[in-house]
Design a protein around this nucleic acid. Structure first.
Lengths: 268, 268
DNA sequence: CTCCTGCGTTCCGGCGTCCGGAACGCTGCC
DNA sequence: GGCAGCGTTCCGGACGCCGGAACGCAGGAG
């Protein structure tokens, strides 16, 4: 079991000029379902620029393998087997294994939703999210991936990874709320600040009214520490960045540090 | 959004005599990683009876699509993109959406680990598992699929689905512990009892020392109610089937009933 | 009721791509 | 240093896939 897979190259358009063309298109077909819950052969064919018959065969083959499932009216959706595979993938990460108990304790301490995230491409993927039962409004749980620039975890990761910083800037800082930092200069400044203070904050930048605090999980020798993941606490802005902020910062940093140490020990 | 996908046909050996042979073998390659965390081309080729070069190309193509990731020494493992797809698949289930808050309340009430499961083939797949922070030993979280015959959720589902009952019996009742019910006659008897009392128990049959109580989530008209999923409470045998048993039974049944109603209302 | 439009699916022939065996680098181990 | 095992690459020949057209079926409109 390894610490973390190499950050996926995020081979966007896996289509074209690859070996195993049909497999590549099959993957592209799967990808169509990332943005849409249900699709039929015609729409898949149109989106990928392939023949309708080809799309139909692809869908049938993927459904035979359980990666897709047939909905009522001949349309398809993502299959539960993908859920199984996905759970297996993340269960086998040493990072998640050592982080889980510490995340649980952090949640108990701060009584807010806590998250564990890594970078995939220019997004943050949340490997784990522990919600707090009674802490006011429930945080929206229906996304597992955010643009990194408007996330405290993304900020922490970018702060220790110049290439990620470049990738994010090249992709552009999309505005989500009036508070999203979209000026590249100001955004770089937040990274500097993150490096100086050892944690990052994100105030109302993704969902207005919601803010977060994140700290990095570091690996590597003393000279060349790099953040492979980050822990964050998220909640309503008044709760997270109000009077409790110092306590939350300390809690998050302590948890991230403990996970770093546990990871180091476990992977040796 | 639909209530639940048709229970997947679990097309076991998707290999052979299917259209899109290369896609089918690609799915079969993926399946190899269900039982093993890391695999190389040689072992995949041997397991599937294909040429080593073919396996190598398959692995490369799947890795290009992000479904696999390359580990250090040329071996591969399941990719995080599968985690994303899997989360999307389960997020889009109406069942999970309406069940989540009720499951959360149930956990608060009973202070034990609660689960939501459906049947896939002759197994139970757990769509959700909410653990309790301080309730003694942590329940093993590293499996997401059980043989249905030694699970209270599986018993509840089989009790209302004759074809599932047959499938389970045909597959055979594998012994996991000295307490696993492996005699088909006795096992059928547990189904009768489940139908009579409206819930199922499972005492030390999967992991010795751990037991569970499950109740069905029903949909359909009054005449033809069928269980599409089930809720369970799991914990150490003494805690779950001891003095608290009546309270837990009531809690589980009430939660399952509430989910049934919410599902009915939401899907109309 | 019937036409019509849209869908998913099936059929078929020709082209193109995938398969398997053998050869190549490489690593780690006797 | 040899050897054995691995992942990867190369190549020719066979075969399975691609795309267009036709089919069956649903739903809506007239």
């Amino acid at each position: 079991m390894t610490v973390l897979p190499f950050s996926p190259p995020v081979s966007d358009d896996a289509l074209e000029d690859a070996p195993l063309r049909s497999v590549s298109t099959a993957v592209a077909v799967l990808d169509c379902f990332a943005s849409e819950a249900e699709l039929g052969a015609t729409r898949v064919a149109a989106r990928l620029g392939i023949a309708k018959s080809t799309a139909c065969r692809m869908l049938a083959a993927l459904a035979a393998g359980g990666l897709l499932e047939k909905a009522g009216s001949g349309r398809y959706r993502l299959g539960l087997r993908l859920f199984e595979y996905g759970q297996l993938a993340v269960d086998r990460l040493l990072l998640r294994e050592v982080a889980m108990p510490i995340l649980g304790e952090l949640r108990e301490t701060v009584r807010e939703t806590v998250q564990l995230g890594v970078a995939v491409g220019t997004d943050v993927l949340y490997l784990e999210r522990l919600e707090t039962a009674g802490a006011g409004l429930r945080f929206r749980t229906d996304y597992h991936r955010n643009p990194a620039h408007s996330s405290s975890i993304g900020r922490v990761l970018a702060a220790s990874d110049p290439s990620l910083t470049m990738a994010i800037l090249e992709r552009g800082l999309e505005r989500r709320t009036p508070f999203t930092v979209v000026d590249p200069r100001r955004w770089r400044q937040t990274l500097v600040q993150t490096r100086e203070q050892g944690y990052a904050t994100c105030r109302d930048e993704y969902d207005q009214g919601w803010s977060s605090i994140a700290a990095p999980i570091l690996t590597g020798a003393a000279g060349r520490r790099r953040a492979v993941a980050a822990v964050s606490v998220v909640g309503s802005t008044s709760r997270v960045l109000g009077p409790r902020k110092p306590a939350l910062v300390q809690g998050v940093r302590r948890a991230a540090e403990r996970i770093s140490v546990a990871l180091e020990r476990a992977s040796s």
